[in-house]
Amino acid sequence: MQEKLVKLATAKKPIGLSGHEISAPDKDGVMLGILNEIDETVMARLLVFRNGAGKTIELEVANRRLLRVADTSTQTMADTTLPGQVFTESGGPLVEALWEAFDKFLSAGEEVFVQSNKLEQAPDPTMIGCASETLAQIWSLDLYPSPETESAGLMGKFIATCTDIATAWVLFENGTVEQTSGPEDQVERLVKIVDGTLAEFDAGLNKHMQGSEATRCVTLGPQGETGDVVLYAKTMTSGALMVLPGAQLTDVISKWRGLQE
């Protein structure tokens, strides 16, 4: 019983709520998650977003559009200015106000739960609302990223998780090096490989590793149990080449797998 109580007390999800968590590594990611919720709502629903501090923003949504803000408990100006306001096709100044409300709402951490409820009454059919895509454009977010953009983002995230581990790395897109880090001589060697030999190495692996042409992670190391290894990872047109201590490989591979899920 005590174990159950501890589990309930430490549960991430607010007790008594159905729904699911929107999780992302940063605020923009959560905002995209929120927009995706709107984008996936066709029937009229009340979407209740609740942050880790228990504050809420309630949106009336239908036909993948935000119709109006039903209620907010963000303890900001938005609580008095936004509820009841109807959104229009072009969004208008309300969209900026909603952004500010969400910005403060998410400052408690990037942990948000969403619950989709029935509306107490059908929405006014004259309310057109603002499309999730329009909201994304105004908020400078990419709601429908291309596979290339997605793969570039994934590789960037992978590098970001390895910066404390890798002694040197280069990040490249379509064979062009875009970012580097590490001692100059080592970076120079990595850049030279990306510019010259990597395509040949890739082509050789393609012959024997069918099915892994688009996404791949390969390591090369020396004899012995200590020392550095070279890691080459790619997804679509984005790739990374890095030098890291061999002892950290298990950790790095697990980070790579984590991003693939």
Binding site: T219, P222, V229, L241
Partner: peptide, 15 residues
């Protein structure tokens, strides 16, 4: 790319 890897071949690998 490894300093000690010049003029050598790898002896361990992973895919």
């Amino acid at each position: 790319a490894l300093k000690n890897g010049e003029n050598a071949n790898p002896d361990q690998g992973m895919t």
